[in-house]
Structure formats: C-alpha cells, structure tokens
Design a protein around this nucleic acid. Sequence first.
DNA 1: CATTTTTATTGATTTTAATCAAGATGATAC
DNA 2: GTATCATCTTGATTAAAATCAATAAAAATG
Lengths: 251, 251
Amino acid sequence: MNELKTTFSSGCSSCGLQRICFPTGLMRTDIMRLDSIVERTPKVTKGQYLYKAGQTFETLFAIKAGAVKAFNITQQGEEQILGFYLPGDVIGMDGLQDLMHQCNVVALESTTVCLLPFDQLERLALQIPALNHQLLCLMSRGLNDGRIHSEILSKRNADQRVAYFVWYLSRRFLSRGYKHTEFRFGVLHREVAMFLGLTPETFSRILSKLMELNIVAWRRKDIQILDMAALARLADEKVLSLPDVLDVKQA
Amino acid sequence: MNELKTTFSSGCSSCGLQRICFPTGLMRTDIMRLDSIVERTPKVTKGQYLYKAGQTFETLFAIKAGAVKAFNITQQGEEQILGFYLPGDVIGMDGLQDLMHQCNVVALESTTVCLLPFDQLERLALQIPALNHQLLCLMSRGLNDGRIHSEILSKRNADQRVAYFVWYLSRRFLSRGYKHTEFRFGVLHREVAMFLGLTPETFSRILSKLMELNIVAWRRKDIQILDMAALARLADEKVLSLPDVLDVKQA
DNA sequence: CATTTTTATTGATTTTAATCAAGATGATAC
DNA sequence: GTATCATCTTGATTAAAATCAATAAAAATG
C-alpha cells in the first residue's frame, strides 16, 4: 500500500460539501483555520486503502468525491461489509477508542479525500466550539448509520432488506443534494449483498423481482427508483409477493 | 412515563466506574467540576424509560448500576433490540445529530443512572480538554459497539451468533472488572434472540446444544462459561456439530 | 399457597435463503 | 475485434431457521 501524499487542492472555503462536512456552522475565519490543518492528497485510485484494521489511528478522512467501503474479513475469509461512504461522509473515528483502526477502508472508484490529523483537529476544536460541536455531530451521524445497518440486518426477510437499502440509499443521495430517484452507485452487487447479509444470488433474484414490478431499475451501477411509495411500503412490509403480471409471463 | 427527579447521591469522585466512565483521565479538581453538572436520580425501576424515540435530545445517561436495553419497534410491531447497556456505559448520543432520540431505552431491572445535561457537558468539555477527549472516546466506543452488532448479525449461521454473543458479553464483563466466566445478565432469552436476529425457539435450541456440549450453562439470568476456548472457536467456525454424546442420548 | 400469566423448551412442518451448477452478460486485455 | 475474465442471472436442490403447536417451568398475582 502506498502512503498518501499531501498535495495542493481547493480548500474547505470553496468546497461544495460545507453544509455536510466539518465546516458546518463555522465562520469564515474559522474555516480558514480548519483549512490549515487539512491535508489534501492526490486522487485515491480504485483498490487503494485509506486504512486497514490494526493500523495506528492518526487521522480522520472526509470523502470529497468518489466512494469507499468499510469491511472486515472473517476467519473464513469472507468480507463483512460494514458500510459505503459517499462525499460528505467522515470516517476513521472507530480508531479512537483503542488508537487503532477496527476495520479496513478501500476506495471503490477514483476518490478524493481530505485528511484531518486527529490531534491537531482536537486541539483546534477546543478553540472553536462550533467545530467541536460539528465533530460530535459527525460522530452521532456515524452512530446512527451503524444503527440503521443493524436494523437492516435484523429484518426478517431478504426482500425488506433490499427494499430498505435502496430507499435509504436514495435518502442519503437526497440529503447530499444529489438527484435521489436516479443515481450512480459504484458498488458491485456482490458487495451490496454482503452488506445486507445475503448471497449475491439472493440479491440478484430480489433485484429482478423489483425490476419486474417496475419499482426499481438497477443495472450494474445505475439505479433508478420508479415507484418510491411502493419501495417504502416494501421496506416495512412482510413479503414481496409477485402479482399476476409475472404469472402471465411464466405461464 | 414519570419524569426522572434529581436527588442526592455519591458523586463521581467516589464512583467505582471512574476508569470507564467520564472521569477517565481527569484530575481531582476537574472531576469535581464534572460532578457539579451531573444530575443523579432515584433508582429507575424495571420498565421505566430513560428516553423514547422522537423525544428531544437534552442529556446523556451514564449507567451506574443495573442494565438497560435500546430498541426500536418495527411497522409489524416487533422489537428490534439494538443493544444492552451495563454499568460504565454512556448512552444517548444517538440524539445529537437531529436533536431527537432515534431509539427507545428502558430499564431491564432496577437501575441507577447519572444524567449529564448535554449543553452543560459540552461547555465544560471545552474548558477541560481531557473531558472532551473522553467524550469523543465514549462515542468511539459506541461506534465500535454498533460495528460489533452488525458483525454478529452478518454471521451466516445462528450457532456462531450465539457463541460470539456470549463470548463478547464475557469480555464486556471482564473489561468492567466483573467476573467473566460466571455472571448474571438480567435479560430475557427472547430479547437476546431479537438482538441476534433470531427467534426465541432457535435461540433456545442453540443454548441447549451449548449446554449439552458443556461449553456454556445459561439458565434464566445466570450465565456460566465452562469452556472459553471452545466458545471462542465456535464463534468463528462454520457449524456447531453435535458429537456422539448427543447421538447416544437420542438413540 | 394456589392461580394466572409469562417465558422457555422441544417436536413437527413449512418456508426461506444458501448452495450447487450452468449460462449470459459485460468489462478488460491483447 | 476477439479472447479472457469477472460479474451477474437463473434454475434445481439442499440446508437452515422460521413457524406452528404443545408442554413445561418460572414468575407474578391475588
């Protein structure tokens, strides 16, 4: 794994993610102080790691563009996917408790990240109450993302998990100011399946059902939500039963 | 639901959980300042709520004695258990993001909690760097607890989930300074099953297997770990196969 | 203490998703 | 463009856990 090298790049002041990332609630002058501790790196290429489980915790990572996944490997060599992170997300705080990262994070596509050396950030936050508050808020967001993952995995049937995932993904895109009925999600189906605690086969079958019902169109990396209301309903309902439409086709 | 009323009680200075809870890393004088903002309540009785989903976020809760569970109710009326919290645990930070709690927390037995009004805590933390640091560490701990729950729920078979849960529970008791091979866990089997994403029947069957194999003895609320090595092995292995011992019995 | 209610266990059956297996499709390399 | 490789889809079968059902055992209630 290559070390990430610092480079020049546009700062927080001109970043489109100000309202989501660390600058939230900060005054212009404070954003400049924040800016001074942020290290910007060249683009992280697909497959490059931001950190690995066991590594010393030193910095937080703010995703500026692209996408990454967090995961751990089980004894059996399987990937347990813990989350997908998009622009505006801040990760790395899992490492604070033991000063050691607890999972692996790798880029899923060409990705831009901002590095925030934690000791410097902590010191600065003590001087800028709004920054400290935002750090706490971002951690609270992390807690809630984890809770939602647990809730997805607790859902008794696979249809619900998939429906809820798509619905929640849409909301995340919405909250970041992206189009939420049609978006690109650069993650393999296999990886989404693992995140949902399913096999790729089961995931594929459910996607087919959702497409057959004209609720979702998800081909490769492009997702389109055709019927948001139906999707939301499915996310909470018991079973995704196929209506006559399909029976006709099968007959 | 009754409002929790403040009352007099022994402070942080004399609390046995200093090394786990907020006072960690603080000097004597700072502990006294922390003490001054902590509200202590009469014992919370079994079934009483610390907070409910949707309520305004105002305070954090430190568990001093007893046990609580966090959960949400699904559309179908099922309880999704999100976690069990023991003395030394601090909860409530899920509410910061939207200034509204995202789950319900209820006492499982007679429980003592310390209330930390968040705005006061935040202000004090800015003045006491070690306190601010500990607040961040406690949130990091929360993130990791959530990650571990996701990892449990991602495990492909039920035996592993139960084995890992017992093993992890034991470690939690150990880290709090309690006996870790024999302890009392005041939670219904049904609730543990829900936490693990299983039905009570499946959970019961697996417990029976673990007892048959002399690995764990879990009757009602008393847990005894008879073979920690075997338990750890099971937590990661594929299937919990029953040896001849059982076949003989069944024959 | 007896009664009622809740919780836990165990068995039989059904349902669901995993596994096994074969193609189809799309991406990448040459 | 063609070949190769990885990913995805679909079908058949198996395995695992859920469900249904009936007791048994505790706990709570009067």
